[in-house]
Design a protein around this nucleic acid. Structure first.
Lengths: 338, 338
DNA sequence: CTGAAAGCGCTTACAG
DNA sequence: CTGAAAGCGCTTACAG
């Protein structure tokens, strides 16, 4: 133990009790204003630092929230989750909380180990950021702690979740294309790969249906194999006038491919992406896309987990966070547009 | 307080004392192997979770390390520091530690406030990740805690630091260009902007000197204004055969600019970058560049801070972490190359 | 308005 | 090999 200054030290110096010091420093009632002031002043002078561990042990609260990100989402170009985590940290701060990052190793996920965060009682709640295996979801369910899925959900698990509104987002983007006069619109993505890709496809599909447009098989282009590895996108014989891509990176790949085949964006084909990540600004022209509202997701997640910490029975169900369309120059307004 | 299971509960159940339970669970001496086993078994069955706060208060250690990142480095495309933080978290785990992220708001930096991390005694040490203001460096110096600068240093401050070997990295890259037969090599970067840009320039310069090449003013191209905002790079009248860029993003910008002017990479001009970030793979052809070894930086930082936690007088000085050249296709071997 | 006592859950000497 | 006692720094009743 370093020779830290404690409340007792301050109390001794001023000839009062440590109870009084505690009350003064926490702005509680029962200490005269003048004494409070004097105590705070001396505390400052002595370089007193509050010992949060002592408070924790009394209250049974750590004032930390754990954020678990599966290892596989932390690759080089995958900074999305890290940015979410960062926003979470910022918002936790408003509640006097801190965020502790726990990368979930593939091994622990496989072996269904509890995270150390949990078994050492380091946190008052856990946010699982990024899809974990079905099996591991059960492990999470067994943790006696407020918990929250962020950016994914499980239809069976009784755990609150917060996700981007993929369905509505793709629906809106497709509506926009139709509004611009497009009638032959393709969707790019392997819809069996992830639930977001599938949900975004369904939003696209709903828009088609609502506008009386017929979906044909040739309008669905795959972008990756079953293991998630990107493949070369096969352009259809009869070219659509517009493409809804399941994410910006794929939109970027598509643009490259279109250019290679002599198609120009947006003169010959219009393209929209999803995410508004770095790839959206690397094409020329930059992409019209759906911005995932990271800040809002983080804010909502923090609010939800804090509610659950103060009331463990609180249920918020599945919350959708809406994005917003970023209009850029990758969509052409056809003459047929009204 | 939630109705948590404590060591006392396990002790009562087995008719032993909590001291014995503590010893057993911590694999300390003084408990028979059979009792140890039994205690561990019961602990598991009862879903016992260790209360780290209680340990903290006894030992005066939180088993957390704080990582402070100035707010301005956490922008959209600036995931570098977040990736470093993530690696730090992974390595801290090996020591039984966790990482707590504290974004340093511009306001706190301006007003020279201690981070809450520190004033609440939440961590055993602090890693400052990313350059903070001169003034704030003094504030950091006043914190009575092991601390470490990561990815920057201050010539005056008596604080250990870990940085990429910018100087040697640029030196090596330039050597490589010369080895490929280039004699007229420009450097791209505002050398008054940051110390890394300057250090990289000096490495480039050393290579020129060593090879008897003369540096001319026209060979220094600025890439940003005094406020760090990228500007359009002005190509010199007499074009060099190769460019050393202070980072990949600038190399990317330069390639665009070269293409616009009808120069092809690497046929007409060779280009090398620095960082090996996403921009290095977005040019065509992809860039030969210096990979900053994030993993190594994080590992070194964690090792250093842990040493300082166990021995507060430990000084490691300024440690350089070497990168390695990633060879790709943006450099042409000239015929004059030996 | 002020403080003595008890307790949070654990660990560290020390005694048996 | 086992355990009673004390203590880490704080807060929460409760008494004065």
């Amino acid at each position: 133990m370093k020779n830290n200054i404690t409340m007792k030290d301050i109390a001794d110096k001023l000839g009062v009790s440590s109870v009084t010091v505690s009350k003064a420093l926490n702005d509680k009632e029962g200490v005269s204003d003048s004494l409070k002031l004097k105590i705070k002043k001396v505390a400052g002078e002595m370089g007193y630092r509050f010992n949060s561990a002592a408070k924790s042990i009394k209250e049974g609260l750590s004032y930390n929230i754990g954020v678990m990100i599966p290892e596989r989402f932390t690759g080089l170009n995958d900074s999305f989750y890290l940015r979410v985590y960062q926003q979470i940290a910022v918002h936790l701060d408003h509640y006097g909380y801190f965020g502790i990052l726990n990368i979930l190793s593939s091994e622990d996920e496989e072996e269904l180990n509890f995270p150390r965060l949990y078994s050492e009682n380091r946190v008052d709640g856990i946010i699982i950021l990024g899809q974990v295996s079905k099996k591991y979801i059960e492990t999470v369910e067994n943790m006696e702690l407020p918990k929250l899925f962020l950016d994914f959900y499980d239809e069976h698990a009784e755990i609150d979740s917060i996700v981007t509104d993929n369905f509505y987002g793709a629906y809106e983007l497709t509506n926009y294309l139709i509004h611009c006069g497009h009638r032959d619109i393709a969707y790019v993505g392997n819809i069996y790969s992830t639930s977001s890709i599938q949900d975004r496809f369904l939003g696209y599909y709903k828009s088609l249906l609502e506008h009386g447009l017929v979906f044909e098989d040739r309008m669905l282009l795959s972008d990756r194999d079953e293991r998630g590895k990107f493949i070369e996108i096969e352009l259809p014989e009869k070219m659509p006038t517009a493409f809804v891509c399941n994410c910006d990176q794929v939109a970027y790949n598509l643009c490259e491919r279109l250019n290679d085949h002599g198609y120009r964006v947006p003169e010959d084909c219009s393209v929209v992406g999803f995410d508004n990540d770095i790839y959206a600004t690397l094409t020329s022209p930059p992409l019209t896309t759906m911005e995932v509202d990271i800040e809002q997701m983080a804010r909502t997640a923090v609010k939800s987990i804090m509610e659950k910490v103060s009331n463990p029975n609180r249920r918020n169900g599945r919350v959708m966070v809406q994005g917003k369309i970023i209009f850029r120059d990758s969509v052409r307004k056809l003459d047929s547009a009204k």
